[in-house]
């Protein structure tokens, strides 16, 4: 008894939980049957404010998402949460535990939490993350929080997927600011130092501010200066400040050139990612039967690697 995706859509628009959940699964499975429906979803989306949250594992992202969502709820907003965890490179399976830290949100109909596994996608997000954002958007969620995997380097992609990017640094995870090490400091619209209840948080804050002061002198005419906000999810401190910084950034983007630039950046990222996916699928389909034969010629050094590569993509129109 399979409900067609197009029949799920009206129920999604009404905010029906089970229908939202099912359409998310179809998007995640890249089911060709749901493609037109997702197109329709995209054309209706664009109302929600998307907040990306990145930072190394253990920095307190999940706990923060939970407290932040509760704060935004108090102002009457509906919150969608997408929590991303890594898939095992060996089995392709995953254990997703972010919900453990979000138990305080249970029972609130205005909060929808979905766990997604990366399934080999790089960049700290799952392939279908942005489809999921659109689905939650049209289902009526005002803020959508994306918690990335948080492994570093390539996590800059979250800045091309969200309107406001939070980079979380935590005390006690090594003496260096983790975001500096990973080279993702630059993507922050707001810096958050989590676990401010810990005595060593002070030095994390001052290290971070020092680092930023160095950067600011280079870019002193930037219209938005990322603030540094200290929060403790444990003591629920700093969240009024965090929410007000979020609101400020949202206002900064609204109707401004910076906002339009951000939207273009998100659209461009989306297009490039989708094109990449399509190419990969086509490549896999069309090269399947020829890989072994060309590899043989390469192994015997009859042709060189570039010629072999060219041969493999021959006639693929790319």
């Amino acid at each position: 008894m399979r409900v067609p995706s197009r029949d799920l859509l009206p129920r999604v628009l009404k905010g029906e939980i089970a229908a939202i959940a099912r359409l998310l699964s179809r998007a995640e499975a890249a089911d060709p049957e749901c493609r037109d429906t997702l197109g329709e979803v995209y054309s209706r989306a664009g109302k929600a404010h998307v907040i990306g949250i990145t930072g190394v594992p253990g920095s307190g992202k999940s706990t923060m998402v939970s407290v932040l969502a509760a704060h935004l709820r108090k102002a009457g907003h509906k919150i969608g949460i997408i929590a991303i965890d890594p898939s095992s490179p060996y089995s392709g399976g995953s254990i997703m535990g972010d919900r453990i830290r979000m138990s305080d949100l249970a029972g609130d109909e205005g909060v929808f939490i979905r766990s997604m596994a990366t399934r080999g996608a790089l960049g700290g997000m799952a392939r279908a993350t942005l489809d999921a954002v659109d689905i939650l958007d049209v289902a009526g969620f005002d803020y959508i929080l994306i918690e990335t995997v948080g492994v570093g380097q390539d996590e800059v992609e979250i800045a091309s997927a969200s309107h406001t990017t939070l980079v979380v640094s935590a005390p006690g995870l090594g003496d260096e600011i983790q975001a500096i090490k990973a080279g993702i400091l630059e993507i922050a619209d707001i810096h958050v130092v989590s676990k401010s209840d810990r005595p060593d948080a002070r030095s994390t804050i001052s290290d971070l501010k020092q680092m930023l002061a160095l950067g600011v002198s280079l870019e002193s005419n930037a219209a938005w200066r990322p603030p540094v906000i200290a929060t403790s999810s444990l003591k629920r401190e700093g969240f009024d400040e965090l929410v007000s910084a979020l609101e400020k950034h949202k206002t900064f983007l609204a109707g401004s050139e910076a906002g339009r630039a951000r939207s273009r950046k998100i659209a461009q990222f989306r297009m490039l990612k989708t094109a990449e996916d399509l190419l990969r699928i086509r490549f896999t389909e069309r090269s399947a039967g020829r890989v072994a034969a060309i590899a043989d010629r390469l192994a015997s050094r009859e042709i060189d690697p570039y010629a072999a590569g060219e041969k493999l993509i021959e006639g693929m129109g790319a």
Binding site: G93, I95, R99
Partner: peptide
Amino acid sequence: CLRDAGLDVVYTG
């Protein structure tokens, strides 16, 4: 063991 078999598992604690 489910993850190692390639399944996606959500654990709620």
